[in-house]
Design a protein around this nucleic acid. Structure first.
Lengths: 120, 120, 120, 120
DNA sequence: GTGGTCTAGACCACG
DNA sequence: GTGGTCTAGACCACT
């Protein structure tokens, strides 16, 4: 479900944040679902519990998970708002990329093609 | 022409690299054109000459500029190869974004719209 | 009457204390009224009886409820003292907020307005 | 400028966050001003550098300071937006308190008085 | 057992 | 020297 890539340039805690955020936004983790405990996840991934803690702390501050002391960490309820923000970000990035491509002289067909290529 | 943004999360040397690379790829800096000297640029940007030196060193290794001892630093001739790499990167990123958007349930029209919006 | 919010940062036992205290102070729970038993409340809220026990213990020590072994828990008689303390706290908080607002440059009219707005 | 109160219920890192946020919002720390380094502040306050780091990390995520690796931490530029949010929060809290007071049967004069008391 | 906090000490990239 | 990251190990409050 979550894995660490030591070749990845991102720090470990960031990889964990991104993984869980992605799973939550895509619906692989439903609202209210319980996440593995800090210690357990640290064991599974063979990293320090503090690193997990840091990631969970960040996720809670951003409203993606809810931390209940003594019970565990859970996916938060209000994912709709977060999902919409996420969509807006991605669409904005799409626009930026298209603009960059045009600046480099790429024609419209190639741009549309780049997008279609992933539909397979 | 080149400016440093201390709010930017990229290190300074990386900002300089990206700026010059971008100017070279877009043609704002023509092949063979002379860049400001390390000292002069350091003065203009109020940063340490070592930082400029490092950026220039990186740019030379990647074939974007050519360093001529005693004369200065110049934009390299063979920008086509670099330009093509850059285009491939951007098109790949476009594909990735489109795929992410689809995973989040965005319909094709919205995706195409995000790209078209920037044509104005 | 009493509900647990797992999104709330307060520990569960504290939420129960605050709920009962609030109901008692506002008069929703009259003096002498019997509270649900520890077991029953634990069932209703789907939480551990120990947690209820702890909340009731705290409430009794603060004189808000009275525990009669073998009979149950009851709202205490002397709510006036508690009510006055509570009012003093709230008025002090009002003063603090107003002071903070003034430090941030908010004018008197806006402050009065913020208070009046809730009168509707 | 910043001090730790070990009697305070808030964790140390939170005290630091609140102190700096307050100084920034009130204008005691101007935009762009340099904060003490992580290690120096840790020495001054006799606490672990990690604790300072955590506070600074949080402040940066919330846009109150900007962290420049190798240079230091600085008060961010966009304090106006943050200040406005802060004012809205305080005014909302004022309204809440006033409402609570009314529920407890406090008359309007006492409420207004509580606010005026701090004007001295 | 679970999360929350803190300390001590280390290594790295950056300037 | 400065911030960024990570580890190891500890104590506390809560369930």
């Amino acid at each position: 479900m979550i894995s660490i890539d030591y070749q990845d340039k991102r720090p470990i805690y960031k990889q964990i944040i991104d993984s869980i955020e992605r799973l939550a936004l895509l619906g692989s983790l439903s609202s209210g679902e319980k996440l593995p405990s800090v210690r357990q996840l640290a064991l599974e991934l063979s990293i320090n519990p503090n690193t997990i803690q840091r990631a969970f702390f960040d996720l809670e501050q951003r409203g993606i998970i809810v931390s209940v002391p003594g019970k565990g960490n859970f996916i938060a309820q209000n994912n709709d708002k977060l999902r919409n923000e996420n969509i807006l970000n991605i669409l904005a990035e799409l626009g930026d990329c298209a603009q960059k491509a045009r600046l480099l002289g790429v024609d419209e067909d190639s741009i549309l093609n780049a997008i279609r290529r992933q539909q397979l």
